[in-house]
Design a protein around this nucleic acid. Structure first.
Lengths: 193, 193
DNA sequence: CATATTCAATTGAAGGTTCAAGCAACTAGG
DNA sequence: CCTAGTTGCTTGAACCTTCAATTGAATATG
């Protein structure tokens, strides 16, 4: 069988070059394992909650939330794809579904014939507003309320370091400031102030 | 449009009950957003690296890694599903693919006619061993080497708190101890000590 | 011992994501 | 201009995951 992560093992790399390959020590393994398990278990739970209570999956919810945060409730598809961490193709398929349900419409951009603006409809906003509280509660129950302020900061700091590697361009971050969180978006609800 | 996360908004819950719904403050939003983005971007990158270099996806790699950590290179399907955070169905489909490629075999468990033991084959171990270094390098590049020891601990602590909520039974944790990380497993390679 | 229930695993269909073209509309070079 | 190349988006096929239904084996109940 195997003792794990101990000795260095020269091995062929992806590129074909040889390298030492540093295996993981105990701390690194525990940290990596915990992240793997969160990544595996959390998204299905959020999906399920939204699916049950609003007939949306997490990705569809995020799309509507992003649109609701815009002043004109609209975004170009390419920008929307970046904000939702989705490929153009994935967004295009999802937008077709949402459009078929009347939750958004797509229209040509007058400034650039190539671009298409996705616009949140009234019914789309209604569905989002109805789904938001349950979703926020789920995020609280599963994530935020499990952490004290220090742990919250620790989580954020680590994840932001990781994002520097994983998403070097930081393409997905909204330019203006911060207001990207899919959850927050939803408060499109009431607080118009 | 919307100012976000500010005011409390009475709203109907999933269960139909009324509740205040505490929106997210700035720190919570930033933390949650960073986690969402890591969950969205990291898995595809690991998948792509493994797919290119070994013709495996992350899930298939994890299956082989889990098996390689066992003394007899075998696990019952249900146990394997728990260890890999997968549904029985998902594992069954994946096992069929891996078996078709000769990387594992499934045989009846003599102790319980209902159970099936998945066993890693020689070629399966070879594929895993060939894939391991590149995968570990990717995990280092994208995650571990982005963090100092304190951040690593912070990440782990927060994720373990989250897992207490997300996976109350802790069903997926290997009983014996720690050696679950998919990455570590791979060192089945050399270190037999 | 017959029957009902639970458990382990599989199956096929439905739904979502990725991948590799492909099609317009814009832009730059000659 | 006009041609070549780039950009924004869509499409269909292949792939993977989920969901509901099913089989067979073990266990519990009367």
């Amino acid at each position: 069988m195997t003792e794990v992560t101990g000795g260095a093992v020269p091995e062929v790399q992806e590129t074909g070059r040889t390298a030492p390959t540093r295996w993981l020590d105990a701390d690194e393994r525990e940290a990596w394992l915990s992240l793997m398990r969160v990544m595996a278990r959390l998204p299905p739970l959020l999906d399920a909650q939204l699916e049950r209570s609003a007939g949306l999956n997490f990705f569809e919810y995020t799309i509507l939330a992003m649109l609701s945060e815009q002043e004109d409730r609209a975004l170009r598809m390419s920008r929307l794809a970046a904000l939702t961490d989705a490929s153009p193709s994935r967004l295009s398929h999802a937008a077709r579904h949402l459009e078929a349900r009347g939750l958004l419409v797509r229209e040509n951009d007058p400034h650039d014939g190539r671009c298409i603006r996705a616009v949140l409809t009234g019914p789309g906003l209604e569905v989002l507003v109805a789904a938001a509280p349950g979703h926020v509660d789920a995020v609280r129950d599963l994530v935020l309320d499990a952490l004290d302020r220090q742990q919250l900061t620790g989580l954020r700091e680590a994840n932001e370091q990781i994002l520097l590697r994983v998403d070097p361009g930081q393409a997905t971050r909204p330019a203006w400031s911060v207001a990207t969180s899919a959850t927050s978006a939803t408060s499109a609800t009431s607080a118009t102030r």
